[in-house]
Amino acid sequence: MLDDRARMEAAKKEKVEQILAEFQLQEEDLKKVMRRMQKEMDRGLRLETHEEASVKMLPTYVRSTPEGSEVGDFLSLDLGGTNFRVMLVKVGEGEEGQWSVKTKHQMYSIPEDAMTGTAEMLFDYISECISDFLDKHQMKHKKLPLGFTFSFPVRHEDIDKGILLNWTKGFKASGAEGNNVVGLLRDAIKRRGDFEMDVVAMVNDTVATMISCYYEDHQCEVGMIVGTGCNACYMEEMQNVELVEGDEGRMCVNTEWGAFGDSGELDEFLLEYDRLVDESSANPGQQLYEKLIGGKYMGELVRLVLLRLVDENLLFHGEASEQLRTRGAFETRFVSQVESDTGDRKQIYNILSTLGLRPSTTDCDIVRRACESVSTRAAHMCSAGLAGVINRMRESRSEDVMRITVGVDGSVYKLHPSFKERFHASVRRLTPSCEITFIESEEGSGRGAALVSAVACKKACMLGQ
């Protein structure tokens, strides 16, 4: 009897593995994704193909990295998701002549009506938060230079001027797309009239992360975010950046690689679950690469896999709870928690219980395998993109072996128990001629924006502006 049951459990697990095998990517698959990513990057950089390229390769006008001589107080704003952060950054000489960066910050959550109302409502709310922060720190009387981390696709015309191309991540505030974001912020500050600010720089969160990590390690020339969304930036040779005049030196390019796949480059790798996630998203047909990796989508992918296993009578005796059938019910943090389970399955059992399920031991094991399959594919897909960037940098610099540091931020990278190990191992397999160091950014977005502002202020002083 026991043997029969054991055989049935083994057969069930084997069927589960057959279904989950769809998520496995072979090294040849990853090399294919990497080569296609490089081709799209090239198209994004070139003037004649930029418009139709899915990977936009947006110039950021960040050319210099901090040298350690900029000092002063800077205000930093960070808008990239449902939370908005205001930070005071003091850049100065530390002990023994070292450079020191001290920060104080406060988080504000953005109400739904500000995210989806008008641009005026959104930026009025942001300036209200700045006003509140300055009151708390008794700094209303000071006109501070301000660095703005704005983590949406922007076409820069200068370091302090950028046109919002399109909202992502659930934002829909009308009247912002096609307009200068810094102008919208300046107008809102003017409307309030109770404080003055000098907006000197606007950067993407990947750029802010790279600059913040450069402060720790001067070989950091790539910034990457794996959180709600997924994106990367890197220092490109100016001669390859056709959208900006000049051939000397390097400029940081914001790849906006989340949109890779929007022209069909990933079609052969998309599964039924991916198509369902895409169809029910706020932007169907867009940001397809990001939807395979980002935390906004990972939990939902797992939920759809679990429903398939229920329908195949391989999980929960073929019956799903009402909660499990509800879109968004299986949160991405559950994926991390399930994979963090120590082996007694308590954590998995508790999560499934909150979803109205009474799982068996085998159910718990199957749910864990589903989570591992989805998150491992995410790590491997992400590795193909980064390997594409790094191999490109090595080739354009004609280096036999390139040493490089990548600064990384984002909740999936930082909080998932195995993502970074799987990701690092896969990147290294795909970049055999590179020695890569990964560092995690601390308060990256805010500190990085302030350091970019410090560079901009120093330049302005040198130019006598």
Score class of each variant (00 low, 15 high):
169 K>P: 13
89 V>S: 05
124 D>M: 03
144 L>F: 04
8 M>D: 15
436 I>R: 00
366 I>P: 00
311 D>A: 11
140 K>Q: 15
155 R>V: 11
29 D>V: 12
166 N>P: 11
238 M>Q: 06
218 H>R: 09
447 R>T: 13
353 S>P: 04
171 F>I: 15
181 V>I: 12
130 I>P: 00
242 E>C: 06
432 P>I: 13
432 P>Q: 05
138 Q>K: 03
348 I>K: 01
24 Q>L: 04
47 L>P: 03
36 R>M: 04
86 V>C: 09
454 A>R: 15
455 V>D: 05
424 H>F: 13
335 V>N: 01
415 L>Q: 13
363 D>G: 01
396 S>L: 11
52 E>R: 09
99 W>T: 12
218 H>P: 10
173 A>C: 09
358 R>Q: 13
376 T>I: 11
9 E>K: 15
465 Q>G: 08
226 V>A: 02
38 Q>K: 13
261 G>M: 09
408 V>R: 00
264 G>M: 02
315 L>F: 01
319 E>N: 14
460 A>F: 14
257 W>F: 13
155 R>Y: 15
380 H>L: 11
13 K>P: 14
79 L>Y: 15
236 E>G: 00
100 S>P: 06
313 N>H: 12
38 Q>D: 04
366 I>H: 04
96 E>C: 14
330 F>H: 01
34 M>N: 00
57 M>R: 01
165 L>P: 12
150 F>G: 15
402 M>F: 13
118 T>I: 03
178 G>S: 10
414 K>C: 07
424 H>T: 13
296 K>I: 08
352 L>C: 14
84 F>K: 03
6 A>Y: 12
339 E>I: 05
245 E>W: 05
110 I>W: 06
168 T>K: 06
460 A>H: 05
395 E>M: 13
390 I>C: 13
153 P>H: 06
437 T>R: 11
303 R>F: 01
66 P>Y: 11
386 L>P: 00
442 E>R: 04
163 I>R: 14
231 N>D: 10
300 E>G: 02
190 K>L: 10
382 C>P: 00
70 E>N: 15
460 A>S: 08
105 H>I: 14
21 A>Q: 01
424 H>V: 01
124 D>T: 07
260 F>Q: 01
337 Q>I: 07
76 S>L: 04
226 V>L: 09
289 Y>E: 00
371 C>L: 02
181 V>W: 15
459 K>V: 10
449 A>D: 09
321 S>K: 12
384 A>C: 14
185 L>R: 01
418 S>Q: 15
384 A>Y: 00
448 G>K: 10
335 V>A: 06
292 L>I: 15
252 C>H: 00
176 A>W: 06
385 G>M: 04
438 F>G: 00
377 R>I: 00
249 G>N: 00
366 I>M: 08
136 K>S: 08
270 L>A: 04
137 H>Y: 13
176 A>P: 11
416 H>S: 08
262 D>W: 08
361 T>C: 03
209 T>Y: 03
396 S>R: 15
182 V>N: 03
427 V>L: 11
442 E>Q: 05
82 T>A: 13
90 K>H: 05
98 Q>F: 05
299 G>A: 10
218 H>I: 08
91 V>M: 12
192 R>C: 01
146 L>T: 14
86 V>N: 08
107 M>L: 10
454 A>K: 05
462 M>K: 15
364 C>T: 09
327 R>K: 15
83 N>K: 07
383 S>N: 00
133 F>E: 02
12 K>M: 15
87 M>F: 07
403 R>C: 14
32 K>G: 10
388 G>I: 02
132 D>E: 06
418 S>E: 12
406 V>Y: 01
212 S>V: 03
256 E>F: 07
247 D>W: 03
294 G>D: 04
165 L>N: 15
438 F>R: 01
396 S>D: 03
180 N>E: 14
425 A>Q: 10
115 M>T: 09
115 M>Q: 14
41 M>R: 01
146 L>Y: 08
124 D>G: 05
361 T>M: 07
187 D>K: 03
96 E>N: 11
209 T>I: 11
321 S>T: 14
227 G>T: 02
266 L>Y: 00
135 D>R: 10
78 D>R: 11
58 L>Y: 15
399 E>L: 09
285 G>R: 13
312 E>P: 01
422 R>K: 13
242 E>G: 04
253 V>I: 10
163 I>E: 15
266 L>A: 03
141 H>Q: 12
282 A>Y: 06
116 T>I: 03
158 D>E: 08
356 G>E: 07
403 R>F: 07
429 R>G: 13
432 P>K: 03
47 L>F: 12
426 S>A: 14
202 M>A: 05
460 A>E: 14
48 E>L: 03
256 E>K: 05
463 L>Q: 14
401 V>K: 15
237 E>K: 04
31 K>R: 11
112 E>S: 08
125 Y>N: 04
188 A>K: 02
12 K>R: 12
289 Y>W: 13
390 I>P: 00
175 G>D: 12
132 D>A: 11
278 D>W: 01
367 V>Q: 00
94 G>S: 07
342 T>K: 12
124 D>S: 05
141 H>G: 12
128 E>I: 15
261 G>W: 01
140 K>G: 05
294 G>M: 08
177 E>C: 15
110 I>M: 12
200 V>L: 09
98 Q>N: 13
220 C>F: 01
165 L>Y: 11
68 G>D: 08
40 E>K: 02
337 Q>W: 06
94 G>W: 11
96 E>Y: 14
188 A>H: 06
272 E>M: 14
149 T>E: 12
71 V>C: 14
234 Y>I: 00
112 E>L: 08
41 M>A: 01
404 I>R: 00
75 L>E: 01
24 Q>Y: 03
246 G>S: 09
247 D>H: 04
138 Q>E: 07
431 T>M: 08
82 T>E: 07
133 F>P: 01
290 E>T: 08
391 N>E: 09
324 L>D: 01
363 D>S: 02
133 F>G: 00
12 K>W: 13
167 W>P: 07
292 L>R: 04
13 K>G: 15
268 E>Y: 05
229 G>L: 06
285 G>Q: 09
155 R>H: 07
6 A>P: 08
187 D>W: 02
344 D>G: 08
329 A>E: 10
66 P>S: 11
69 S>L: 12
170 G>Y: 13
436 I>G: 01
350 N>G: 06
38 Q>C: 10
211 I>K: 02
387 A>Y: 00
369 R>M: 14
139 M>W: 05
354 T>P: 04
260 F>R: 00
455 V>T: 11
401 V>D: 10
274 D>A: 00
189 I>C: 13
311 D>T: 08
